[in-house]
Design a protein around this nucleic acid. Structure first.
Length: 670
DNA sequence: ACGCGCCGAATTTTT
DNA sequence: TTCGGCGCGT
């Protein structure tokens, strides 16, 4: 299909700064990929001088694929399509010496940095999880605002802030000692370096002569600054975004960055993509009218040339179980009557806890479903263990990794022994592993403990040395895994055999990625172990296995997780004051972002949209009678069918339930 | 190794 | 209020 006039305009605007305001379903990924193709084939930009930046690996991967399809792989060689964090990492790796860092640094995820913060604030905070989270969040805010510890301290108003700034200083000091970076550092360090070092900045401006940024409304201050520094005076760039889909401000995203562009680049060309190719007219109308309740810097109104479609519906359950039952009865009915496959239905909710009741009902009715989100692969204990081994191999000063695995699997090294090692490390100004390997430890530990520690150090060192010879690295890792007896340990400590099997399977999955990345393939150079580990930390695996084969399953996810996706039939559940908008957002005057969240949900729907709610909802042990969400009243009532609010008799309710089940029986006989 | 008992969660989480 | 996870004790 041809690009529409606005899309063409967006693709062809190649001189100077361009902002593409891309409404939901307006084909923005297509515009970005076409634009990259246009830059390469028509404008003489070599691929290696173009960078496209996204927020997720998934988006980066999709974009890479689509550019490859459009142009053919040979034209895309050298093209940079990566996440902000991977781009930051690329710059840091090239500029390690400028940054006074050693190669083979570790990347800490949120859990790792929380563990470090816990250790650093031991006496003062005493492991208070609530406070630690707040501290971590605060440090993140400072980093995103590009404030270093002493600047944070200088700015601190309250005593609390001063204390937190002091912890921030300790944290950074320790991170440096461990040669470790957190995710925010991946943006902050390159930004500060580019800002202060003219030669480095020029080098990177030379490298990236054209920059494209996706989901621009989700950038934070340091990310925007990085963009500004990279594009320089030339300002040849395109950012694509939609202020109405900004739903991550609680994570530091600054949707104001869209408006700031106009201030910082007066020549900014603004192009709006308002034609929607996804949803029926009624759904778009509802979305437009809802979002008009928010203030806007840029006016935007989506339109569709598709049919007007069926009315939006609002249905009730007498409580949350009944709500779930009714949704399921509805799905079963439509599957049966209209032959709609399960996979065309999506259930969207505000909070993960809401999923449980729907899950239960789906299981009870044997309806296949897929829940996205939840505990991620990398949050699993066995994966964290293995990653800690990998990190320690690459970076012997990674004390967080050392502490995690020193006694895992159990090898008779208890907290006391670790304490002794810590003391020695402190005296010698070294990392824990080096201290553990020091002869001075002999006099401080019992013979057994000393021997255990020695054995562990030798294991790590031997393996690390073997890993230096690239071809041997993978087998060295497998040998290590064997030697420490991790599989046996899993079977000993898991609550069930099947749990152990699951965990061991996960370990093997990880090991497969590692060995694939070490080996490389037709499209990927073989990577060093250090690069492999870094990529894994950023969840940036090559050939990340295709999302487990998607059968015919009902889709369950949070509204946040649904951004960017589309479904023929959408149920937005729990449409109640207190849930959406969420109570704490109401309390903090953050209803506009909740409205955007509702907007995101509505614009996921292609053909039909159903809002559901419960008349009664149990919470904290008492029972609430929530009001319908204010957003329902903001929608065009002519397009909304409210179910009659008659109070059904028990008999009628039972009838509804039974007819649902009867339909199910029939469906299962198919 | 297993079981019991207590405590915490209850908003969203791209890296 | 309830459920699940974790930690400790036998």
């Amino acid at each position: 299909m041809l690009l529409n006039p606005r899309q063409q305009e967006a693709v062809r605007a190649i001189t100077g700064p361009v902002l593409v305001l891309a409404g939901a379903g307006s084909g923005k990924t297509r515009v970005i990929t076409e634009k990259i193709a246009h830059l390469i084939t028509r404008c003489g930009y070599p691929a290696k001088h173009i960078a496209a930046v996204t927020f997720t690996n998934k988006a980066a991967k999709e974009m890479k694929e689509r550019v490859g399809q459009t142009l053919g792989r040979e034209y895309t060689r050298g093209l940079t399509v990566s996440t902000f964090h991977t781009l930051g990492l690329t710059i840091i790796k090239k500029e390690v010496t400028q940054l006074n860092m050693k190669a083979g640094f570790s990347l800490f995820d949120d859990q790792d940095s929380l563990a470090l913060l816990n250790a650093l604030t031991e006496p003062e905070l005493d492991g208070d999880k609530e406070l630690l989270k707040r501290l971590q969040h605060k440090i993140g805010q400072w980093k995103n605002a590009m404030l270093l510890p002493d600047q944070a301290l200088a700015q601190a108003q309250t005593d609390d802030d001063k204390l937190f700034a002091e912890f921030y200083r300790r944290y950074q000091q320790n991170m440096r000692a461990c040669n470790a970076l957190d995710f925010d550092d991946l943006i902050l360090l390159p930004t500060l370096l580019l800002r202060t070092n003219d030669a480095v900045r020029q080098r990177w401006q030379q490298k990236f002569q054209y920059l494209l940024v996706d989901e621009y409304q989700d950038t934070n201050t340091s990310q925007y600054e990085l963009v500004r520094l990279l594009v320089g005076q030339q300002a040849n760039f395109t950012v694509v975004g939609d202020d109405d889909q900004s739903i991550y401000s609680w994570r530091g995203a600054q949707p104001q960055n869209l408006a700031l562009l106009q201030r910082d680049f007066p020549k900014l060309q603004v192009i709006k993509l308002e034609q929607n190719y996804r949803s029926h007219g009624r759904i778009l109308k509802a979305a437009n009218i809802l979002i008009e309740n928010n203030p806007h810097v840029f006016e935007k109104k989506l339109f569709s040339e598709m049919e007007y479609g069926v009315p939006l519906r609002v249905i009730y359950g007498r409580n949350e179980e009944h709500e779930a039952e009714r949704v399921i009865a509805e799905i079963v009915r439509r599957r049966f009557l209209e032959r709609t496959p399960y996979s065309q239905f999506a259930l969207l909710y505000r909070g993960n806890h809401q999923a449980r009741i729907f899950e239960k009902a789906l299981i009870a009715n044997r309806i296949p479903y897929r829940m996205t989100g939840g505990q991620s692969f990398f949050a699993r204990a066995e994966i964290k263990d293995m990653m800690a081994y990998l990190r320690l191999l690459v970076n012997p000063t990674d004390d967080t990794a050392f502490i995690r695995i020193i006694n895992c699997p159990k090898r008779g090294i208890g907290p006391n022994t670790v304490e002794r090692i810590g003391e020695l490390a402190h005296e010698l100004h070294t990392g824990l592993l080096e201290a553990a390997n020091h002869q001075a430890l002999k006099t401080r530990l019992g013979a057994r403990e000393f021997q255990s520690v020695q054995y562990f150090c030798q294991l790590i060192q031997r393996c690390a040395r073997r890993c230096d010879h690239q071809p041997e690295a993978a087998s060295a890792l497998f040998d290590l895994l064997k030697t420490i007896g991790y599989e046996e340990w899993l079977y000993e400590t898991s609550p069930s055999v099947s749990a152990a099997e699951m965990r061991w399977k996960n370990i093997n999955e990880l090991m497969r990625w590692v060995s694939d990345m070490l080996k490389g393939d037709a499209e990927h150079e073989p990577l060093s172990l250090a690069d492999t580990v870094a990529k894994l930390c950023l969840r940036d695996m090559m050939s990340r296995q295709e999302e487990a084969e998607q059968g015919d399953q009902v889709q369950l996810m949070t509204l946040h997780a649904s951004k960017g996706l589309e479904f023929p039939h959408v149920f937005m559940v729990g449409m109640e004051e207190g849930l959406l908008p969420h109570q704490s957002s109401i309390d903090e005057n953050m209803v506009e972002e909740e409205r955007r969240l509702a907007y995101v949900g509505i614009t996921r729907a292609q053909q039909s949209l159903t809002f559901t709610m419960a008349k009664e909802r149990r919470q904290y042990g008492d029972t609430l009678r929530p009001e319908p969400s204010r957003f329902l009243f903001e929608l065009p009532q002519d397009d909304l069918e409210w179910e009659e609010q008659t109070i059904a008799t028990e008999a009628q309710q039972e009838q509804t339930r039974l007819s649902g089940i009867a339909l199910l029986r029939k469906a299962m006989e198919d």
